[in-house]
Design a protein around this nucleic acid. Structure first.
Lengths: 219, 219, 219, 219
DNA sequence: TATGAATGAGGTTTCATTCAT
DNA sequence: CATGAATGAAACCTCATTCAT
C-alpha cells in the first residue's frame, strides 16, 4: 500500500493555495487591488468564495501573500546572479541583463512592479518593503559591478548610484509597459531586442572614450 | 478700468472646477481610482460632497476630466518641442530632455503616467487614448530626431523605434518613481542629475565609434 | 394715470403662485410626490428653484397647497350643486352628473383623485381630510337625493349609502383612468359618453320595476 | 419516505423570495414606489438589506417582480373565468362578479390596481403592460358576454365596449378604495354587499324594458 | 423679490466576511 | 475541508433646502 492516494483529485487539493495565488495575481494586476472582488479571484481559481478564507485571512492578507510569493522567487533569482564571478564588469552586466530578461519574460513575474507601483498608496508598508528587498538589493548589485568597472578602468568615471538606476530603468519600464499597453500597442518591440539594444548602448556609453561627450555639450 | 468686480469670494467660486481637479488628481494618484472616496476629494478641495457633482457627473467623469486636463498641457508642451530647429540631433535630444525635465519637475504633471499605468485595467479606453495621444507622439518625435541623426552620420546606425523607447524609459521611470518611492527612499538621486547623466550616456552610446562594442563579447 | 403699472411683467409676477401650483400639480400627478423633484416643478413653472420657497415653505407644504387649491374649487362646485331644487330625483342626479362631468372635463381637476389615491400612504392626514371634505359630502349629497327618490316612490327601495357609491364609482374611475391609461389606450371611450350611459343605466336600474331582478336566479 | 430533509430552517430558506415579494408588495402599496426604502422591505421580510439583492437586482427589478407575481395569478384567475358556458348572459356576469369578488377579497391581490395607478408615471412600461394583459382581456371578456346578451335579446341594445367599463368600474374602485380609505372610513360598506347591489342594479338597467328611460330624459 | 451654487442627510447598491450545512 | 447564502458597513449619488448676491 502506498503512503497516500493522490489520484488527481488530491493533487488538485494540495495545489489550491498556489492556484489561488496565481488567480489573485492575475486579477490584482488586471484591475488593481481595490477593484478586485474576492469573488472574481475565487471564480478564476475555480473555488468558492469562502474557500479563499481557509487559506488567507483577508483580502489584504491575500494581496500580501501574492507579493511575497513573487518576491520570494524574484529575490532568489537576483541572489543567484549576485554571486561573484571572474568575468569582466561588462560581461557581468550582460549576465545580469540575461537574468532580468528571464524574469520579465515570465508574465507573472513581470507583473510585480506594476502591482507595487499601482498599490503602494494603499499599502504604506508595501513600497518600503519592496524598496528594501528588491530595489536596494538590485541597485546595490549593479552599483557594485559599475564601481568595480570604474575601479579597473574598464568604465569611465561615473557615479555608480546614478547609473545603476539608468541601467535598471528600461527593464522596469518594459515590464510595466507589457502589462499596461501590450493590448493596444501598434508597433511593438520584442522585449529581448529592447534589452539587447539597451545593454550595448549602455556599455558603449560607459566606455572610457576620448573626450567627454561627442558634440558641443554642457547643460 | 476693471472688467468685473471679483471681490475675493467670487474669485474662489470661479476657480472651483480647477481646485477640484487638483484635489482629485492628488487623491487618485495617492490611492488609485477605486480606493479614492469622493468625500476625500471633496474634503481636500474644501467643498462638500455634493458640490463635486455640480461639475462632474460621476466619479468616472471626474477621473477622466483629471486625465484630460493633464494631457492637455502635456501634449501642448510636447507639440512646442516638436518644432523643427537648426540644431544638431544631439542638441535637439538635449532640448527634448529639458522639456521632459520641465514636465516631471511639476509633481502634478509627473503624476500622470502613474495614474494611467495604475488604472488602465479599470478604464479600457484610457490606455488606448494615452498611448495614441502621448506615447505615440512622444516616441515619434524622438524617433524622427534619431533617424535624422543616423542619416547625417551624427549617430551610428541604430533602430530609431527601439532607441526612442530607451531614451524615454528613464524619464518615465523617474516620474513613476517619484510618486511611488519618494517617501521611503534612503539615498535619492535628484531627477535633474539622473536626466543629465542619462542624456550624456545616451549620446555617447550613439556616437559612431570605432568598432562595435568596446570589449570582447556578444550577447 | 393708473394706480399701478402692470405691463405684462407685473401681471406675471402676481400670477406666480398660481403658476407654481399648476406646475406642481402636473408634476405630482405625473410622477407621484416622492419622485417629483423641486427642480422639475421650478423648471415647469419657469422660475428658479429658490423661488418656490418664497411661496411654499417645503415640498410637503407645496403638495398640500396643491391639494387645497384643487379641493377649494371642487368643493365649491359640489356645494353649488347641493342646493335644493324642485326637480325630480332622477333629474337631480342628472344634474349632479353634469357637474361631475364639468369637473373631470378639466384635466387639472380630474387629477385630484389620483393624487390623493397615490399619495395617501405618505400623507396620513390626506386620506382623512379628503374623505371628510369630499367623499363624505359628495356621497351625502347623492345619498340624500337617492333617499328622497325612494321616499317619493320614484326609485325602488335601495340602500342610499350603498348606491351612492355605485353612482360615483364610474366617475372616479374615469378620472383616474384618464391620467393613467390615456396615453396607452387603444380604443378609448369619450368620458361624456361613458357618463351618459352610466346615468341612464343607473336610473333604469333604480326604476321601481315589476319583479325583483329580470331573470331567474339568486345572488 | 420524504423527498428531502426540510428541517424548518431549510423551509424558511426556500420561501425567501416569496416572503420578500410579499413584504415588498405591502410596502410599495402603502407608500408608493419612490417613498419605499429597501431597508423597509428588508425589515418587513425579516432579512438584511443585502439579501434582497441576492434575489432581485435592483429596486426596480423588485417592483417589477412584484407586479409580475400578482399579475400571474390574476390573469390565471381571469382566464379560468373566460371559459364559455351554457349559462345566460346575466348569470355569466354574475359568475364574473363572483370571480372578481374572490380577487379583491384577497387584500394582496386587491392592491395591484392601486400599485399600477400610483406608479404608472414612473414606469412607462407598466401602464402599457397592465393595460394589455389585464384591462384589455378583462374588458374583452365582459364585452363579449354583453354582446352575446344583446344578440340573444336578453339585454337591450347597448354598446358593449362602454358598458364593460361601467361593469368593471365599481370593482376596481372598490379595490382602490380599500387600500386608500379603509383606515379612515366611518361608515364602511362590505365589499360583498356593494358588489351584489352593483350586479343587480346593472342587470336591471340592461333589461330590455319598455321605453328608453323611465322619466323625462335627455341630457 | 429672485436666483442658483452649495450643502449634507439619506437612499441605493456593492462586496468583504461569516457560518450553518 | 468546502460551500455559498446571508450580513451590514461603507461608498456613490440625489435632491430638499439654504443663503449670499
Amino acid at each position: 500500500m502506498e503512503d497516500a492516494p493522490p489520484p488527481a483529485a488530491r493533487r488538485r487539493k494540495e495545489a489550491r493555495p498556489q492556484e489561488v495565488l496565481e488567480a489573485a495575481l492575475d486579477t490584482f494586476v488586471g484591475r488593481g487591488f481595490a477593484a478586485t472582488r474576492m469573488e472574481d479571484v475565487a471564480r478564476r481559481a475555480g473555488v468558492a468564495k469562502g474557500t479563499l478564507y481557509l487559506y488567507y485571512a483577508s483580502k489584504e492578507a491575500l494581496f500580501e501573500a501574492v507579493v511575497q510569493a513573487m518576491l520570494g522567487t524574484t529575490i532568489a533569482r537576483l541572489e543567484g546572479d549576485l554571486g561573484e564571478s571572474p568575468l569582466s564588469a561588462g560581461d557581468r552586466l550582460r549576465a545580469v541583463a540575461q537574468g532580468m530578461a528571464g524574469i520579465i519574460g515570465d508574465p507573472r513575474r513581470a507583473a510585480l512592479p506594476k502591482l507595487v507601483i499601482a498599490n503602494a498608496g494603499s499599502f504604506p508598508g508595501l513600497a518600503r518593503f519592496y524598496y528594501r528587498e528588491v530595489v536596494c538589493r538590485g541597485l546595490g548589485l549593479i552599483g557594485r559591478i559599475l564601481a568595480h568597472g570604474v575601479a579597473t578602468g574598464e568604465f569611465r568615471a561615473i557615479d555608480p548610484t546614478v547609473h545603476a538606476r539608468l541601467f535598471v530603468a528600461p527593464v522596469l519600464m518594459g515590464a510595466v509597459w507589457q502589462t499596461t499597453f501590450a493590448a493596444v500597442e501598434e508597433t511593438s518591440v520584442p522585449p529581448a531586442d529592447l534589452l539587447h539594444a539597451h545593454v550595448e548602448l549602455f556599455l558603449r556609453g560607459l566606455a572610457p572614450g576620448a573626450a567627454d561627450a561627442p558634440a558641443g555639450e554642457r547643460s
